[in-house]
């Protein structure tokens, strides 16, 4: 591979990285088109024997770099909540969600899901810190009994009954 083609490939990689950032700031359609551009570029770089192809790939690479948030100002994200790709690992998967407010990242959360097949259960049941709102909501139709701290008999019954009727 020629030096020029290597540069094109690296630029293409940056372009794909940029696309990765773009996933967080744009909708699915934009992501798809950016990814396609990156792929085309990489192919061009790999097969870059003729000068014409190399020139084409370089110019394409420049175009991608120009559209990435890294060079065009990384503080201007569009507001909203964006869920990243789910990453699977040995014991399950993790999905990261980013919240953008006022052009800045205000919250990043990781949603870990166990595969339910891990034998010991001692790793995938590890508690992690969360916001209260990230906890599964109760479905009173499915609840058969209630757990809560006890203090007195009557307070417990009152608490239990009102919890069931309000949920």
């Amino acid at each position: 591979m020629s030096i020029r083609a290597r540069v094109a490939a690296v630029v293409a990689s940056v372009g794909v990285l940029g696309a990765g950032w773009a996933v967080g700031t744009a909708n699915g359609a934009t992501v798809a088109s950016t990814t396609t551009t990156g792929t085309t570029n990489t192919n061009a770089g790999t097969s870059g024997a003729s000068g014409t192809t190399s020139t084409t790939s370089t110019s394409t690479g420049t175009t991608i770099t120009g559209t990435t948030p890294i060079t065009s100002g990384s503080t201007s994200y569009k507001d909203g909540t964006y869920t990243g790709t789910t990453v699977t690992h040995q014991y399950g998967s993790v999905t990261v969600t980013v919240t953008i407010s006022g052009g800045k990242i205000t919250n990043v959360t990781a949603n870990a899901v166990s595969d339910g097949q891990h034998r010991s259960g001692s790793i995938n049941s590890q508690a992690i810190p969360l916001m209260k709102s990230e906890v599964l909501a109760a479905d009173s139709a499915k609840v058969s009994t209630i757990s809560g701290a006890t203090y007195t008999t009557t307070a417990y019954i009152t608490s239990l009954q009102s919890a069931l009727s309000k949920a």
């Binding site: 869920t83 969600t97 899901v113 049941s125 508690a127 810190p129 969360l130 990230e134 599964l136 909501a137």
Partner: peptide
């Protein structure tokens, strides 16, 4: 203070966007 520590079994499903 509103924070919790929870095992994965208590997590709400990931929001679909």
């Amino acid at each position: 203070d509103g924070t919790v520590w929870a095992s994965p079994v208590f997590l709400a499903p990931a929001p679909t966007t």
